[in-house]
Design a protein around this nucleic acid. Structure first.
Lengths: 340, 340
DNA sequence: TTGAAAGCGCTAACAG
DNA sequence: CTGTTAGCGCTTTCAA
């Protein structure tokens, strides 16, 4: 058995009797080729089992059919987004490459990852918008970038979850149950979800003509440890009944909140009412199940892929598109109790 | 401001005064170049801010510094593996590309994904080992493939979790608590974890001189729905006290098991003792927390990357390496109760 | 409409 | 030790 060299465009050219250029035109569905020859060449391609070499195509065309995804994939939310983005991209022949980023040195990670590699576009979730170094790096990138849930000054808005309405629904629900002292646990204040959450929170209280207490907004990092610390901070108030409800804007922080509650022997909904962003196995299987804000993550991933693809295909449109806002659903379960 | 063309090896050659070939040798740390020239060239490279074009390098060298990862990343276990694999690969300049696969048409997905694209290696987690079509596709692949927890006939063993010891510990623990009718919920029987689990289960009973009841091994699919159905199947027995413990070999199935228990108003540890594979937020935060089998996932990812890299760097060693066995930890918590 | 030929940026073989 | 050159497989002028 002889070693089978990969079949190239040259083989197709010979086999079909047409020139290399013509074959290329047939492959790329380009103009200036008769339907007849296209068919003949197509037949040769199928007989030989030819597939164009993506690497060679890329080198010549400067198109890579490849997207870089920067996020912390160990967060199931991003894992799921990555999955649906990949599935969507795949149907357009695009490949998704992963790059994990943490809290620190994000710009360094991103630029060293991009260095030398070639992508047509980037999907990005970053820990803070106010990262001067990062923003500098981002301006230098000459391919479209779609941020997830971030307002990056140098970038078009991308895809956003409707945190404002979500938080409004949650807070109003708690108010309707009679809660007045509602703590809200959020990530740092330099990301859109936090800003939008706070805005919604304030608006709810303003609308009700109620006093808004700044101290009840607790900002930290987007991880469970931080969530735990923040809950521990207000635990005394909860014990004293000075805080009767907690709204968590982040799934990871919520894990920490639950851990802290356990440590403090605080039980929901009796000692405290709780609501969290992101519905998942945990919120469903906890006893009682947790009232939560749900977003269609697969749909989000699909939309992210779609905008990016649009930007790539039509660079003129980059930055001209309206932000895509993903609506959420408010799932009332049994983790909140009315104040009597 | 003039448009800055990307600097190429030619520029470096001109700037440094050395030939293109010499520059290439400097870049690739190849033999046959004096330390002096290397330094001079290095200086030029830095001054010009040159980075080799990976695409061109790949095209010429047939090395792509690129790995394909086939798995269902929406399972947090694989997401975390993907993350740590990526981090490890990144330190060697390799890129990780994602491809989601489901339960069906796996061979079709894999081969169409690979088609035209170029990778140096593959990481693979497949739903069943007895997939004739898939195995046929796999034999045709001429780059190293590292399977995760699977014995694929046509492939070297790769990286394996020690299911045998893990299950043995769990079963023996249950036996020591006085349990005799232990149900084990597993994936399909054509994957290594199931086979190893069953073998361990049998060995434990044999060793104790106890009767092993085949009916208590419940095989299904690796998803929560299947876990739910299987638990529902034996629910009557649990109610009657004919089954007193359940061991779940899969994290996804475990979600379903918990759902089914809730439907059936079955509570652990009072109505039934439970143990599951994979420790995570859910097992820790459930009340009471769940006794579980934990494996070091990040370490697993790192090892997967390492073997694959070794195979790529030294193709002779492909298939000659011993399987890498990942040990597990048995975390006793409060989900099991002794039989009195 | 088609073919020929010039590269894309790089590596590797060959010469010197 | 270093320079020159021939491609890798493809797209894209430019002629025919």
């Amino acid at each position: 058995m002889k070693i089978t060299r990969k079949v190239t465009i040259k083989d197709v050219s010979q086999h079909s009797g047409f020139g290399i250029g013509t074959v290329s035109r047939a492959i790329n569905q380009s103009e200036g080729i008769s339907e007849k020859t296209r068919k003949k060449i197509q037949a040769s391609i199928e007989q030989l089992g030819y597939t164009p070499n993506y690497v060679a195509q890329s080198m010549r065309s400067q198109k890579y059919k490849s997207i870089a995804f920067f996020a912390d994939i160990s967060n199931p939310v991003f894992a799921q987004i990555a999955k649906s983005v990949q599935i969507e991209l795949d149907s357009y022949g695009f490949t998704l490459s992963l790059c994990s980023i943490g809290e620190k040195n994000v710009e360094e990670k991103i630029s060293s990852f991009l260095n030398g590699r070639s992508f047509d576009g980037i999907i990005l979730s970053i820990p803070t918008e106010k990262d001067w170094k990062l923003n500098k790096v981002l301006t230098k990138i000459d391919i479209p970038v779609v941020p997830i849930n971030r307002d990056v000054p140098t970038l078009p808005p991308g895809v956003l979850t409707d945190y404002y309405s979500s938080v409004k629904k949650a807070i109003n629900y708690l108010i309707s149950l009679g809660h007045e002292s509602i703590a809200m646990i959020t990530g740092n204040k330099e990301i859109r979800p936090t800003r939008e959450g706070i805005r919604a929170y304030k608006d709810c209280f303003d609308f009700q003509g109620k006093q808004f207490n700044e101290e009840l907004i607790l900002s930290g990092k987007l991880n469970s440890k931080s969530g735990e610390e923040l809950l521990l901070e207000i635990a005394p108030k909860i014990h004293r009944g000075e805080v009767t409800a907690v709204l968590s804007l982040n799934n990871q922080m919520f894990y920490g909140i639950l851990r802290a509650m356990r440590k403090e022997s605080l039980r929901y909904p009796d000692d405290i009412s709780i609501i969290t962003f992101e519905d998942n196995e945990l919120t469903q299987l906890l006893d009682p199940p947790v009232t939560s804000i749900h977003r269609p993550i697969d749909d989000m991933g699909k939309q992210i892929a779609q905008v990016l693809l649009k930007y790539i295909q039509d660079p003129e449109s980059y930055g001209e598109e309206e932000p895509i806002v993903i609506p959420t659903e408010f799932l009332i379960r049994d983790s909140c109790k009315p104040i009597i």
